[in-house]
């Protein structure tokens, strides 16, 4: 699915150069569940941005399904995010003045689906994450765990091949965290590729491979099996 060749990304901060990704070469296969772990500032989120087609690296090549991601025009990359790549965020990033149903409709609206199709699919997805009775609720009326489940439903709206999750359990309590990870594991079992950034070892344990980044470079690669 992904092939990264000598990808380098640096930031300039107060006259100093900070290396976020240091000439990394990694390969991520279809239907893989990969956890990216590492200390703060190790380049985890930068790597996720690069994989999501949102940050063109200074050097190197990013291949997605064999195509060079950053040789595609901006509009095409946006389209790719709308159809093949799904995102899950730590802070859920739901639009506060839209209902749960409308939030899930957003990717389909961007994809040009009719209102009828959007409502049918969004209702089905909210039911799948156990929120069929909360479809008209605004995010402020939902618990953190429920908000993340709405976000998961939104991620699935356009049936993406890959889900990029940035600390998806960072704001959740232990029980809800487990519930969210179960959903991600379920999505993985559906055949999707899951790439997850996390600080939490329990969360990382759901992945079948862990990539540890230190100073922008893979430190060690170890295979773990989902619990």
């Amino acid at each position: 699915m992904y092939q990264l060749n000598e990808v380098t990304q640096t930031y300039h901060c107060r006259g100093k150069i900070v290396t976020a990704l240091n000439s990394i070469d990694i390969s991520i296969e279809d239907n893989e569940f990969l956890a990216i772990v590492g200390p703060s500032g190790s380049g985890k989120t930068t790597l996720l941005s690069v994989l999501g087609g949102m940050l063109k690296p200074e050097h190197g090549e990013v291949l997605f399904d064999g195509d060079s991601l950053y040789d595609l025009p901006l509009a095409r990359r946006a389209q790719l995010r709308g159809t093949k790549i799904g995102f899950v965020f730590q802070t859920f990033n739901l639009v506060p003045w839209l209902t749960a149903l409308e939030n899930v409709q957003i990717p389909m609206m961007l994809g040009g689906f009719s209102s009828k199709q959007q409502i049918a699919r969004a209702s089905e997805l909210l039911e799948r994450v156990g929120l069929h009775d909360r479809i008209d609720h605004h995010p402020g009326e939902l618990s953190q765990g429920q908000q993340q489940r709405v976000a998961l439903a939104r991620t699935l709206a356009n049936d993406p091949q890959v889900i990029l999750a940035d600390e998806p359990t960072g704001n959740l309590d232990h029980e809800t965290r487990h519930q969210v990870m179960e959903y991600l594991a379920e999505f993985h079992r559906d055949g999707r590729t899951i790439i997850l950034v996390t600080h939490d070892a329990d969360t990382a344990a759901f992945a079948n491979r862990t990539l540890r980044l230190v100073h922008g470079a893979p430190h060690s690669n170890e295979a773990l099996h989902a619990a």
């Binding site: 965020f89 990717p107 961007l110």
Partner: peptide, 16 residues
């Protein structure tokens, strides 16, 4: 900003 970023992450183009 965050809402716009989210929309872009979800596939919104600049023209949208």
């Amino acid at each position: 900003r965050q809402e716009i970023g989210t929309l872009m992450a979800l596939g919104a183009s600049r023209s949208f």
